[in-house]
Amino acid sequence: MSSPGDRDRDGFDDRPDEGSGWREPVHLGKGDTPGPAPDRPAEPPQPEPAWQPPGWDLPAAEPERPVQPQTVGEQPAGAGGFGGRRPRTPSELERVFAYQGDPVGAQGWAIQHGWDISDGTAPQDAVLAELVTTAPVRATKDHRPAGVMRGRYGSLDLVAFDVLYASGRYAVPEYAVTAAPVLGTVPRLRLSPARFWKHRTGGLAQVPSGDPVFDARWVLLAAEDGPAVRRLVEDTTVRGLLLGTDDGDEFWTTAGHGGGWAGGFVAAIRPDGHRPELIEHHARLLTAIVGALAAGA
Rank of each mutant, 00 (worst) to 15 (best):
G258K: 01
P34K: 11
H282Q: 10
A166E: 04
P187M: 06
V177T: 01
P193A: 11
V159P: 02
D8Q: 07
A126M: 05
E130S: 13
A216T: 08
L128K: 01
M149Y: 03
V26I: 10
E64H: 06
E62F: 08
L28F: 14
V148P: 06
G101V: 09
P271H: 00
G80T: 06
W22F: 09
H282P: 12
F161P: 07
L93Q: 15
G21P: 04
G260C: 10
S209D: 10
G78K: 02
Y99E: 13
E234C: 06
D17N: 12
G80Y: 09
R15W: 07
L278P: 01
G210N: 09
L285C: 15
T133I: 02
W109P: 06
G73W: 03
D39A: 07
R88F: 00
G263Y: 10
Q112L: 15
R40I: 11
G260I: 05
G101A: 12
E174A: 15
D162N: 11
E43W: 07
G260K: 03
V163T: 07
D249L: 07
P271S: 05
E43K: 08
A135M: 11
A228Q: 09
P63E: 04
R195W: 08
V177S: 03
A42D: 14
D6Q: 04
F251G: 02
L285Q: 12
T237V: 03
W197S: 13
G273L: 04
A180M: 01
T134C: 14
P145D: 00
V127A: 13
W261L: 12
L28N: 14
Q70I: 05
W261V: 08
R200L: 08
A171L: 04
R270N: 05
P276S: 14
P54C: 08
P87T: 05
V132W: 00
F12V: 07
V186H: 01
L164G: 00
A295K: 05
P25K: 04
A262W: 10
W261K: 05
E18A: 12
H143N: 06
L286H: 13
F265V: 04
D32F: 14
D32P: 13
P41W: 08
S155R: 03
E74M: 12
Q206S: 15
Q107D: 12
G108I: 05
D235S: 07
D157R: 13
P44M: 11
A60C: 04
L156K: 00
M1A: 13
P16G: 15
G114D: 11
P66M: 07
I289H: 05
G108M: 12
F265L: 00
